[in-house]
Design a protein around this nucleic acid. Structure first.
Lengths: 164, 164
DNA sequence: CACAATTAAATTGCACACAACCAAAGAGCG
DNA sequence: CGCTCTTTGGTTGTGTGCAATTTAATTGTG
């Protein structure tokens, strides 16, 4: 109504594109900072989960990170080649592969403690702003995930959605 | 001060990870919606720019999207194979390659007008919320880009930043 | 004009993401 | 036990994203 349809393609771009750009900008900063540790950003995320939760099967790791085996398998192979984690099949359930930190992987945590401060400094945002932003993003993710599971049960914006 | 150093690795994870997760969640929704148009999300972004600005050299396209030729070259090759754009070297400056929409590429815009409405519906956010979020994300991107260019000239977060 | 420096694209190599498919192992049931 | 179904990881193929290198064209300087 208020916006001509022709402008929608610009408005639309701004939402998703801003998110995409911010995500890649973060990636750029992490890339610089994590280079000292020999890690990529996704590898760092995997280690964060392991440092916090200890040994985990690949399945649970993917649950925490929202990643599937197609992404995690080669990534974990590289972390194992770097000597930071070790993979071993569970004896109870041989389908499951448990990911365990090596001594080097555990030790790397000490050096990683520097990372958050440097990232926070790079953003220039204070803690409250960050927390607020995070909350909104998580709400957005939840809504989008739900929408992705159902194909498109969204009623047109006109008309009251009395259908429920 | 307020947070034990050991918890920083969790706080840190939440900011960047929320952003990353939201970005990928958006990607998932776009993937479903754009499948009808035979486009990926980055390809759609390229077309958005071309629909808005008309013909552009690869360089300017990358400027709008914050992407370099390493990403754009193969992407544009695929768009050209799909018959949506055409590439031709400029006669004035033969280093430059101009990207031009074909008739099919121009016509696709009509069908793309549906996309923003479906995306907006998927988020469940209203226009003001979206705009506010976008503003913050753009601020974040600006800060991060600046920080990425300078290695690490950020003073410790204590001390009032009276410097301005 | 010769020649170094710069610029625009393309190419190569590496690392995600994700869909689709595959194989092995477990679970449930006759 | 045999059979099917499900679960868990792995593999393959496609498409980005980005660093580093290469090639061709242009610009700047003497």
């Amino acid at each position: 109504m208020t916006t001509p349809t022709a402008d929608w393609l610009r408005l639309d771009q701004q939402i998703c594109f801003s998110l995409n750009a911010a995500s890649r900008a973060f990636g750029g900063v992490y890339r610089v900072i994590l280079k000292d540790l020999g890690l990529t950003y996704p590898q760092y995320l995997v280690l964060l989960v392991l440092w916090e939760h200890g040994d985990l099967p690949v399945k649970d790791l993917g649950g925490h990170l929202r990643l599937d085996s197609g992404t995690l398998s080669p990534l974990l192979k590289r972390l194992e080649a770097a000597g930071l984690v070790h993979r071993e099949r569970s004896t109870l359930d041989e389908r499951s592969v448990r990911v365990r930190l090596t001594e080097d992987g555990t030790a790397l945590r000490e050096r990683a403690l520097e990372v958050p401060r440097r990232i926070a400094a790079a953003t220039g945002f204070d803690v409250d702003e960050i927390r607020d932003l995070r909350t909104r993003l998580d709400d957005l993710t939840t809504a989008l995930d739900k929408a992705a599971r159902h194909p498109d049960r969204t009623p047109p914006p006109q008309q009251g959605s009395a259908g429920a």
